[in-house]
């Protein structure tokens, strides 16, 4: 499967896989929220599961589970990392 690596976002992560945030391209209050929760460039994030309609998406961030909507996740870019935990 070919996905432009530069354009990979948190919304593209399948459940169970992890990524490393490269940039947070969200503005306003949501940006502050996301950063206060510790989702910063360089932070590893794992997609834990998706809601029944595929949206929102639950992410594991620094030991806690945070759910965000897919359209917001599309603006958080990541680089994929190899999945060690299965």
């Amino acid at each position: 499967m070919e996905i432009g690596l530069a354009n990979l976002s948190l919304a593209d992560l399948p459940a169970g896989s992890a990524g490393c945030i490269t940039s947070v391209e969200v503005g306003g209050l949501l940006r502050r929220r996301i950063m206060d929760l510790g989702m910063l460039p360089g932070t590893q994030v794992r997609c834990v599961r998706k809601a029944p309609w595929g949206d929102p998406v639950a992410l594991q961030v620094r030991g806690s589970i945070i759910a965000l909507r897919a359209e917001d996740l599309r603006k958080i870019k990541i680089s994929p990392i190899i999945n060690r935990e299965g």
Partner: peptide, 11 residues
């Protein structure tokens, strides 16, 4: 602080 996710709480 929450002992189960200390990092975020330390912030």
């Amino acid at each position: 602080l929450d002992a189960t996710c200390l990092e975020r709480n330390l912030n």
